[in-house]
Design a protein around this nucleic acid. Structure first.
Lengths: 190, 190
DNA sequence: CTATTCTTTACACAGTCGTACCAGAAATAG
DNA sequence: CTATTTCTGGTACGACTGTGTAAAGAATAG
């Protein structure tokens, strides 16, 4: 009793390439065939690994969220204070080379808002992931309510500024606003 | 030389209903036939008025932007100061009955970020509309650079908080953060 | 080698998409 | 009324969608 062994890593390998493709070509018109052609495999290879179109989309946005967290938020909780964490977060998220990734992020975000049942996992974590890290950065002595309020404001401001930057490309103006926000975070007890 | 007169208002009438439908049913899977069925007309009636699918989408997001501006930003420039204008803007945008409209707004926003050529008009105005009004609210004596910086920050914060609110539904936490932001706007020269 | 299991592919199918075409209804001017 | 133009609906067509089925290729154990 034997047979070819199951390749447990194949799905993850394909997923990386699929996410790359999606970052570049967009999320709204994603279909099996063009993706498969770009990866040099058949459509059924993808279907075999991901099950269905909906499961593919869920896998994509799950991996996208992971990537962004790894690249921009992984070490946020280890910063000494909220202002430093916020500055690190903004510097990383506003880096030009991350723009395509965040455009996809907001495309997914918007779609999830209109299909909350399908993408519930994304909406659950999209704020909570950062909230936990930014609360942690404020230390255990901070009043929880205050910590949550500050963290909420930091997440919102960074994402709002990022929306502006990605839409207008006006980096000077947005960076100027970001600096004033970060400076205000650093100077008073906020 | 005669003939049936051109009905110049028909397109606008249909557009209102189409936007209503889109707010309710989402933007990503919008197709002619279900929309036409919901409006009680044939698909060709819609095609006749809007020309093509792409033109329909452009018309939808244009009208959506107008609606939001009418409902939440029309009088912003007439406020006496930025803090008051920001409070009015937040109160209106965060109203529960506007949630579906803003979910569509962010869905369109995200899609526009990934198809900038197609929706260039949306991206051009999505920040500029509010920027003009929020600068106006700061009066003619404010330094332009400062006015732009503050307006950018207000727009970003409100939209970021709205993203959070729509994703998590945690109104208490978001409103708490919004209050602290608005209070900071009101007390010092910021 | 054979047997077994997994992987990948080619093909087919029903359904939906946007849109072009055409005929009839509706509304005007003369 | 007729002539003319617009509006609307029915139908059709090619392209593309997700997915099911079946066969071929690849990798193991004995």
């Amino acid at each position: 009793m034997a047979g070819r062994p199951v390749d447990h890593d194949r799905r993850a390998e394909l997923l990386e390439e699929v996410v790359d493709y999606t970052v570049e070509h967009g999320f709204s018109d994603l279909t099996w065939r063009p993706v498969a052609a770009a990866l040099g495999v058949s459509t059924n290879t993808l279907v075999h690994r991901f099950g269905s179109k909906e499961q593919l989309l869920v896998a994509i946005l799950g991996r996208l969220r992971e990537r962004i967290l790894e690249a921009t938020g992984e070490l946020l909780g280890e910063q000494h204070d909220l202002a430093t964490a916020a500055r690190v977060a903004w510097t990383r998220t506003s880096a030009p080379e991350r723009a395509p990734e965040f455009k996809l992020f907001f495309a997914v975000y918007g779609r999830a808002l209109q299909a909350p049942g399908q993408f519930a996992g994304f909406l659950d974590r999209v704020v909570a992931d950062w909230m936990a890290r930014l609360c942690e950065a404020q230390g255990p002595d901070t009043d929880p309510a205050t910590a949550h309020r500050r963290a909420t404001l930091v997440i919102a401001t960074i994402r709002g500024l990022l929306l502006d930057l990605l839409a207008t490309g006006d980096r000077d103006r947005v960076q100027d606003a970001a600096e004033s926000f970060l400076a205000a975070l650093e100077s008073p007890p906020g």
